[in-house]
Simulated scan of single mutants.
Amino acid sequence: MNIETKYHGLIEIHKEEILHFINGIPGFKEEKEFVLLPLPENDWFYVLQSTKTAELGFVVTDPFLFFEDYDFTLNPSTVDQLEDPSEKNIKVLSILTVREPLHKTTTNLQAPIVINLANSKAKQIILNDTSYETKHLVFEQPQHQGQGE
């Protein structure tokens, strides 16, 4: 099937590549099917693209690449909705807010996307009892060279 995308133009996707968000994504409840597209020449960032709405694509990343200590527990209802995935079949992504300059880019660690790779079911969860926030800097701030800069 062909879909129009925000960053890749018109592309062909296969049915088995579609991620199914049973309840949609918070703020986009009607958007239930997405596909994960790589960004060209980049192994760290992807686009979570709606299959229905071309303008709806989120830049995402694996948060563990930038935050090694990132940790949370899935609640039982999420485990049920994802159909009890094994730990090896879980993929976690976080949505980025890309800013210029790039070192001001942030990621939302309070609302990760959890995917069961075994059945392509996905859910964005909200972590309530946590110190994680919606805007964590992804890249370290550049170090100033010398004084007066």
Rank of each mutant, 00 (worst) to 15 (best):
G24E: 07
F64V: 05
G9K: 11
E16N: 15
N128L: 14
V35K: 08
P112V: 02
V79G: 05
P40I: 06
K88Y: 08
K52A: 07
H8T: 09
L74T: 06
N89G: 07
I113T: 07
R99V: 02
I18G: 01
H20W: 03
A122N: 07
F45N: 03
K123G: 01
I95K: 02
I3Q: 04
N89S: 15
L19G: 07
D62G: 08
N89E: 15
Y132N: 04
E17M: 08
K52W: 00
V60P: 01
L36H: 09
F72K: 11
D69K: 15
I126V: 15
N116A: 06
P101Y: 01
F58H: 06
I13N: 03
Q145W: 07
E41T: 02
S120A: 11
E4K: 14
A54S: 14
I90F: 02
S120F: 04
D71E: 14
P38M: 04
Q147V: 12
N89H: 14
W44D: 13
S120M: 12
E133P: 00
E87W: 02
T5G: 05
E41A: 12
K123P: 00
E16K: 15
P38E: 12
F34M: 05
K6W: 01
K32P: 07
D129S: 09
H144F: 11
Q110L: 15
K123A: 13
E16H: 15
V114I: 14
K29F: 10
Y70L: 10
S77N: 12
L39H: 08
E30I: 07
E12G: 09
S94R: 01
H103T: 07
F58C: 05
E133R: 13
F28D: 04
I25P: 04
E31Y: 08
I115W: 04
N2A: 08
T61E: 04
N128F: 12
K123L: 11
E4G: 00
Q145K: 12
L109E: 02
K32E: 07
I113M: 01
T106L: 03
K29P: 11
E100K: 12
Q124V: 05
K121M: 06
I25T: 05
Q124D: 02
L37V: 10
L127D: 06
L82H: 00
N75Q: 13
E83K: 13
N23C: 01
P85V: 08
G9S: 10
Q81P: 00
V79A: 05
L19V: 06
L82D: 01
S50P: 01
G146L: 03
I3R: 04
P76T: 10
P40D: 14
P101F: 03
L82I: 05
F64T: 09
L37R: 09
N89F: 06
A111S: 14
Y7M: 11
N42T: 10
G148Y: 00
K52L: 10
V60G: 00
K88Q: 13
T107K: 02
D69F: 03
S120E: 08
F58T: 03
L19K: 02
L93N: 06
K32G: 06
Y46D: 09
E31C: 09
I13R: 04
E55D: 14
R99N: 14
I113P: 03
L37E: 10
L56N: 05
E16Q: 14
N75K: 15
E4I: 08
